[in-house]
Design a protein around this nucleic acid. Structure first.
Length: 221
DNA sequence: CAGTGGATGCTCT
DNA sequence: GAGCATCCACTGT
């Protein structure tokens, strides 16, 4: 199988592996081995490490999804984290075992998906901010009501709508259907940036992105 | 491309 | 009752 770097991906590489790709303007990456699921131990680490290493992995929900190109870390001692003020009914999943998904409603209309991780029993999670669409493109277009590729999954709310994520999946484990979270085939260039859209932000390197990807939710400085 | 404002409903104080 | 871990349509360069 062959895949193309998310920041230059021109089409649905996995939907149509034989698709002709412009190799002069794109970066081609050979898939050396079948995509392998991330081990449970992957998530049981420091949230910043997990957020960074999730870049380049592939996230699928019922076979629909793509390569993660942007994440954001939420640590327990961060005033902006839902876990900062202790456990409540809404954030209970964050206080549970790592490797599960925490989904909540933002601004009354957008769902946001987080991957729960932990180190030393702290409640922390990684917000999924953007994917490079790879598989199930047509399904995403139906759900999003548009076909412009760069608008399918470039943002936490868009990503959830494209993949059909709602409260219904809150708390589910990531190593079982409908989810697949597959290791990357390479070590992508990662850029670090400040957080976006949070008033009580603490200045730390929280946001991670695949350098140069056109599928980032917002540009990094 | 940058800036603006409205939609919308849940969570927690 | 305030405050959102957002998105989209619309405006003006």
């Amino acid at each position: 199988m062959r895949a193309i770097a998310p920041h230059r991906m021109g089409g649905a590489a996995w939907d149509n592996p034989s698709m002709r790709i412009n190799t002069t303007k794109s970066i081609i990456i050979e898939m050396k081995r079948p995509p392998k699921p991330l081990a449970p131990s992957f998530y049981a680490r420091n949230v910043l490490t997990v957020a960074r290493e999730l870049i380049g992995t592939t996230f699928l929900v019922d076979g629909v999804g793509g390569v993660i190109v942007e994440t954001e870390a939420y640590q327990e001692d961060d005033p902006a984290s839902h876990s900062f003020n202790g456990q409540t009914e809404r954030n209970a999943v964050m206080f549970g075992p790592p490797g599960h998904i925490y989904i909540y409603l933002s601004y009354g209309m957008h769902w946001c998906a987080n991957i729960v991780c932990s180190e030393g029993g702290h409640a922390s999670a990684v917000l999924l901010r953007a994917l490079a669409p790879v598989a199930g493109i047509e399904r995403m277009e139906e759900r999003r009501g548009l076909t412009k590729r760069v608008l399918l999954c470039s943002g936490p709310g868009r990503l959830c709508q494209a993949l059909g994520l709602t409260r219904a999946q809150n708390g589910l484990a990531l190593d079982a259907p409908p989810f697949e979270l597959l290791a990357g085939q390479e070590s992508p260039p990662v850029v670090i940036g400040p957080r976006i859209g949070i008033s009580k932000a603490v200045e730390r390197p929280w946001r991670f992105g695949w350098a140069g990807s056109r599928f980032l939710s917002k540009r990094f400085a």
